[in-house]
Design a protein around this nucleic acid. Sequence first.
DNA 1: TAGCATAATTGTAATGATTATAAATAACAT
DNA 2: ATGTTATTTATAATCATTACAATTATGCTA
Lengths: 154, 154
Amino acid sequence: MHSLNICNDYNIRMKREITAFDQLIAHNIRPSVQRLAVMDYLLTYRSHPSVEEIYNALHPTIPTLSKTTIYNTLNLFLEYGAVQALTIDEKQVRYDADCAEHAHFRCSKCNKLFDFPQPEFTEDKIVSSGFKIDKCHVYLTGICDVCQLGRPLE
Amino acid sequence: MHSLNICNDYNIRMKREITAFDQLIAHNIRPSVQRLAVMDYLLTYRSHPSVEEIYNALHPTIPTLSKTTIYNTLNLFLEYGAVQALTIDEKQVRYDADCAEHAHFRCSKCNKLFDFPQPEFTEDKIVSSGFKIDKCHVYLTGICDVCQLGRPLE
DNA sequence: TAGCATAATTGTAATGATTATAAATAACAT
DNA sequence: ATGTTATTTATAATCATTACAATTATGCTA
């Protein structure tokens, strides 16, 4: 059905020894079946999934699961810094359990997301601006390697 | 009502000698009252406004103006490369008539957007990745200079 | 271990941004 | 002028997300 666990070399960065359980505990989030399932999905599939994708993936296994729960859960994760939200996709928010600063690439053909290394900031105008910067999102768009081989979007 | 034309030094970059008319012509967009008004607003106020903001600003002067027209117009501008869309705001798309690559900063207190210089890419993993990069959006979030003075959000 | 308090989940309805559609209007050319 | 095409408009539809209120699960205390 979905083979979305697309990886480029940068996606290996995050060690997957971390269990969903430990990840929740580490962020002071009380574990529950649903929360564990969502976190486990994020840690296993690095597709930076949307709520929709997570729901479709987990619903067969947890038939009682509600989409609202996914929203609640992800907002909780966000609040506790256990995930980061990506707005690179104009239609829906995508989530990433890897909160370390790194860039993202969205293929405008297949719409998949890929991790990329974060560029360095060489300009120092930024520091001298009087603005306090909390976070830097780098969103690249273009055509991924697979799509460049001409395989059309089906 | 709205004094949104907030500028930092970087906002001066784009020369405003360009008229809305010339901007449209330069991008092969047939001018109309509505299109000129929208482009003129974008060129005059560098707040990176949302559809809502543009509508509220222009509606008093052009009472027949429809919000749909603003959507149509901005999508047309996008299609012809006359503006760029910013997804730094999770709630609504913001627009920028300056298509030159530059970064953006969103204050998480007042939610205003500011232009910033684009950081340099020093990592070359990116070029060697086999991905064709079309565009690079850099979205910074934090607290702007004004909000750091503690003035609470009213 | 029963009973109670709190937290988590769920279904449904509401919101709000954006798009689809089709009618009305304006611009344009013959 | 008149017909053709482009543009604008109002209304309805869509879709992601949130609000809300009821239900269920969990944890704690006696």
